[in-house]
Every structure is written in structure tokens, then in C-alpha cells.
């Protein structure tokens, strides 16, 4: 059965283009141009026997901030949410990721980027009901969180406890961006939320141990100003 996607975007042209493109990819798309309309669709659809699988949400809506809609949805449903936003609200983007958005995409973007992000987001299936990912494999790197084992090309890699905690946090959301704040709170604790330099140093150490070329990482990717993403 086709996956059901709610697309909330106020620009008619872009909405139409995205809708057609998603349709071609086999998604069942409901398009909405306003916050009020989106709320109506959500409450109706989430109560039906075929609830939504994904929400693609634009931030600038004519009748309200997309951020408010995001917080409402996050409070009520375990629905994966992908934010699409214009570049000028970088700070807002981080706030939304911290508020529970699954991923974000900056306008202008290509359809292939959107489809890739949607696939990742869908695989994680929201944040609350998702079975935590405990096993990760990408290229030569293999991580087993349950057994506490990290190996590169079959060889075990020794990580310090903090390095392991940091890596494990990224593995749990592999493919998705995890903000600096989320990483600092989960690995070091809420009181260290401003110590971004901890992250820089430990990410540097992790890359030195796990990446072939630490300057051009292929696994531990940087999202400048936002956070980090473990490649899938």
C-alpha cells in the first residue's frame, strides 16, 4: 500500500511540483496550503484507519507559524516530520529540530534530496514508537551498541566511554541530523549544553579513529551551525 504523506506548503507552484513529484514516486499525497487546513486534515486522517505516515512541513505559512503546528503535532502524534525551510531562519531550524522535527531541508532543494530525506525519516518512523536502532553498518565500519563493540574492517576499535556514548547517540538516529544541543544534553548532561567545544574535540577524535580521511569524513558528517549526522 502506498505511504500516505501530508505536504504543507503555502506556495502553490512549489506545492504542485512537489505533489506531482511525490506522486510519481508512488506516495499518496495530501497537499495543504495553510496551517488551519493542515490541522483539519491531521485530526481527520490520524483518527481514520489509514493514518498519515509522514508530514512534510514548510515553516512560513500564511495563517500561522509552521513551528507551532510542529509542536502541536509532536505533542499528539508519533508522526515523522520533515521540515522544509528557507535559508534565512538558521536559528529557528535548530529550535525546531530540538522541538522534535525529524529532519530539515533548506530551500531551494532538489527532488532527489527531498526523496532521500523522506526515505530516511520514514525508516525511523517518528520519535516515540521507534524501536531503538542498536546495530549499524556502513562501509568498513560496524557498530553493535548492545555488545558495546565497534570495529573497522573487522578490526576492533578502542573508544573511550565518552566517544562511545557520542557515537551511540548518533547511531540511534543514523541518517538524521542530531543537533549540538541534543548531543550535549544526552552525552554530557544538561549542564553542559553550551560547551560546544567538547563536541568538536570528541568528534575530531572519533573521526581520527574511524574515518579514512578525517578532513573529508564519509561517516561522521558535519551540518555546520546545526549538528552532526551519521551517514547511512
Amino acid at each position: 500500500m502506498a505511504l500516505k504523506v501530508l505536504l504543507v506548503e503555502d506556495d502553490r507552484e512549489l506545492r504542485q511540483t512537489l505533489r506531482d513529484a511525490l506522486h510519481v514516486e508512488g506516495y499518496d499525497v495530501i497537499a495543504s496550503g495553510s496551517s488551519a487546513d493542515a490541522r483539519a486534515v491531521l485530526s481527520h486522517s490520524m483518527a481514520s484507519d489509514r493514518p498519515l505516515d509522514l508530514l512534510v512541513l514548510d515553516l512560513g505559512l500564511p495563517d500561522g507559524d509552521g513551528g507551532d503546528l510542529l509542536r502541536n503535532v509532536r505533542a499528539q502524534y508519533a508522526l515523522p516530520i520533515l521540515i522544509i525551510s528557507a535559508r534565512h531562519d538558521d536559528a529557528n531550524k535548530v529550535a525546531l529540530l530540538d522541538a522534535g522535527a525529524d529532519d530539515y531541508l533548506v530551500k531551494p532543494f532538489s527532488i532527489s534530496e527531498l526523496l532521500a530525506r523522506m526515505r530516511v525519516t520514514l525508516r525511523h518512523r517518528g520519535t516515540t514508537v521507534r524501536a531503538p536502532q542498536t546495530h549499524y553498518r556502513c562501509g568498513a565500519l560496524e557498530i553493535d551498541l548492545a555488545k558495546h563493540v565497534v570495529s573497522k574492517a573487522g578490526e576492533p576499535v578502542h573508544l573511550t566511554p565518552t566517544e562511545f556514548k557520542l557515537l551511540a547517540r548518533l547511531v540511534r538516529q543514523a541518517g538524521q541530523v542530531v543537533t549540538h544541543r541534543q548531543l550535549l544534553v544526552d552525552v554530557w548532561g544538561a549542564e553542559h549544553v553550551d560547551q560546544t567545544h567538547y563536541l568538536r574535540l570528541y568528534m575530531g577524535q572519533l573521526r581520527a579513529k574511524l574515518e579514512a580521511n578525517p578532513t573529508e569524513p564519509s561517516l561522521l558528517l558535519t551540518e555546520p551551525g546545526i549538528g552532526y549526522r551519521l551517514a547511512e
Binding site: 536559528a91 560546544t196 568538536r200 568528534m203 575530531g204 578525517p214 578532513t215 573529508e216 558535519t222 555546520p224
Partner: peptide
């Protein structure tokens, strides 16, 4: 502008990517 502690290696890495 919002300054923070950053790694030049990371910045160049994402530019190159």
C-alpha cells in the same frame, strides 16, 4: 553574528563535501 568554538577541519570538510 553568532560565534562558537568550531573546528576548521570540520568546516573545510563540509565545504569540500
Amino acid at each position: 553574528i553568532k560565534k562558537d568554538w568550531e573546528s576548521l577541519q570540520e568546516i573545510l570538510g563540509s565545504v569540500l563535501a
